[in-house]
């Protein structure tokens, strides 16, 4: 037994073990560092009847809806390409009735996760939305989408949203240790709340690092190990989106995807090639470099701009000083044992 608590596994194993048909699945990332490879793996494994949460659902939502994995979608912002002639997987699925969607504002969506993360059953949100059709038009959540209550302190009407505790979160971060401590920096978005509100958490990362690195930078950790079910090391795991410190947005690859996504056939062809045609991220990147040249990838690789180290040190790491004397009582271990014996404080 090397380490009983290591949670390292492949994306294939993590998705197959922790994502079930019919689950509420939440995309942990917001706009950047999209957990692209975990999304691809959900599509490859053809998970069905998911309720998908995504704060800002562009690449991730399009892939999963396009792959037929999603029945219900909760989001604040979805994608549409190409003007009047264009379209999107979400739009096509709404049109053909295979998808229902619930709209929230960015803040309300995040508030639902904050409530879920902290164990509250609802959260107060700014009341202005009561006059909008966000409030009036409701899809599968019906009455449960918003509720108005009277504040017991001010007697004013306040708008509330229900908490959300999705079954499983998939999230990509810069680095993690084998236990699952996940470190992420950059735009914080709703990343921590998405993960911490969920029942199960699958973390993919650019690098698995030694636990000592995590210990010396605890303020970068956004998900503690004891909450995490699986850790997957996936270099380039967010491509074509960006990961600060590792690579920039691949505008060319992203644009090619968006152009393909204008039609159902286009998206299908793109996914056949890049999702279903590649068994894993390594194969995807190899294929990408073979087709576009390694220089395309090198051009977006991040140059270093390191955060200044913070000093977590203290004056000493033992109660005993260099002379072997206890710092408060000033005695050596031998003297201490003698005193305990003389005072009759020892038993057994």
């Amino acid at each position: 037994m090397i380490n009983p608590k290591s949670k390292i596994m492949t994306a294939k194993e993590a998705i197959s073990r922790f994502v079930n048909d019919g689950d509420q699945l939440i995309i942990g990332n917001y706009t950047v560092s999209t957990c692209a490879e975990l999304v691809f793996e959900v599509a490859r494994q053809q998970k069905k009847a998911l309720t998908l949460y995504s704060q800002s659902g562009i690449f991730d939502v399009e892939i999963l809806v396009g792959a037929g994995c999603v029945d219900k979608l909760i989001s604040t912002y979805v994608y549409r390409a190409g003007g009047k002639e264009g379209g999107s997987a979400v739009e096509r699925s709404l049109k053909d009735g295979s998808l229902s969607m619930e709209d929230y504002t960015n803040f309300q969506y995040n508030a639902r996760l904050m409530a879920g993360m902290h164990g509250f059953s609802f959260m107060q949100v700014p009341e202005g939305s009561m006059v909008t059709d966000l409030f009036k038009r409701r899809s599968f959540m019906g009455e449960g989408k918003y509720k108005i209550i009277r504040c017991p302190y001010t007697d004013k009407e306040i708008l509330t949203v229900p908490s959300a505790n999705p079954d499983v979160c998939i999230v990509h971060v810069q680095r993690a240790d084998k236990y699952g401590n996940a470190q992420y920096w950059g735009a914080m978005g709703s990343v921590a709340a998405a993960a911490l509100s969920s029942k199960r958490i699958i973390v993919s990362c650019e690098e698995i690092v030694d636990h000592e690195i995590i210990k010396s930078s605890p303020h970068l950790t956004i998900i503690p190990a004891f909450r995490v079910d699986a850790v997957v090391e996936i270099p380039w795991g967010a491509h074509p989106s960006e990961v600060v410190g590792y690579y920039n947005l691949d505008k060319v690859a992203y644009a090619l995807f968006l152009m393909s996504d204008m039609t159902g056939d286009g998206l299908k062809a793109w996914m056949d090639q890049w999702v279903f045609g590649c068994p894993n991220r390594h194969a995807y990147i190899e294929k990408y470099m073979a087709e576009n040249g390694a220089r395309t990838i090198d051009a977006i690789r991040a140059k270093a701009y390191y955060s200044a180290p913070a000093n977590y040190g203290s004056a000493f790491d033992s109660c005993w000083d260099n002379q072997g004397r206890e710092r408060t009582m000033g005695v050596t271990m031998e003297e201490l044992n003698t005193i305990l014996e003389e005072r009759g404080l020892l038993r057994g």
Binding site: M117, Y179, N181, H211, I214, S216, P218, T221, Y312, S314
Partner: peptide
């Protein structure tokens, strides 16, 4: 935090 040499996760009292 001076009693240890680093730790894995820094959060707040509320959380």
């Amino acid at each position: 935090a001076n009693a240890c040499r680093g730790f894995s996760y820094a959060t707040d009292l509320f959380s």
